[in-house]
């Protein structure tokens, strides 16, 4: 069971290595002559005149929170979707299992409707 994940683990390490090695290689073979002009932040030719980490639109937070809700919802639907056919094949409880998820979806949809109505999804 878990052995089948061994290649995945190795692949993760190789993947990270694939990121690290080219950077090291580039550092070794490419020139390395930093100067203060070169290392200053890019700002279309101007001097940077304030910190770049500024306030940003609150809607990004909203999107992030909505995403978490929806993604969690999808994560909850995964097991349901996997076994749903078994319930249909078994014949009994299929409607209950369907209904339970529909209630679950309905709660989310109502929240979604309210968000929409309140303008959380609008970008001007």
């Amino acid at each position: 069971m878990l052995e089948s994940y061994f290649p995945v683990l190795v692949f993760i390490l190789v993947g990270l290595g694939f990121g690290i090695v080219p950077i090291l290689l580039g550092r070794l073979v490419a020139p390395w002559r930093p100067d203060s002009e070169k290392l200053s932040p890019y700002e279309c030719g101007f001097e940077a005149f304030e910190d770049a980490r500024m306030k940003f639109d609150v809607r990004y937070y909203l999107i992030a929170i909505l995403f978490i809700l929806f993604d969690l919802e999808i994560a909850f639907l995964f097991p349901w979707a996997t076994v749903f056919q078994d319930f249909i094949a078994a014949g009994e409880h299929a409607w209950f299992v369907f209904g339970a998820v529909m209630v679950f979806l309905a709660v989310l949809v109502i929240g979604y409707i309210v968000e929409w109505k309140n303008g959380a999804l609008d970008w001007e």
């Binding site: 950077i23 290689l25 550092r27 073979v29 490419a30 020139p31 390395w32 930093p34 890019y42």
Partner: peptide, 23 residues
């Protein structure tokens, strides 16, 4: 690309800056 200099801007968070492309 291999023979181009890798620039790490002076204001950057060095560790994260390198971590970004790896991630």
């Amino acid at each position: 690309l291999l023979f181009k200099e890798i620039i790490v801007p002076s204001g950057a968070s060095k560790g994260l800056f390198i971590l970004g492309p790896i991630l």
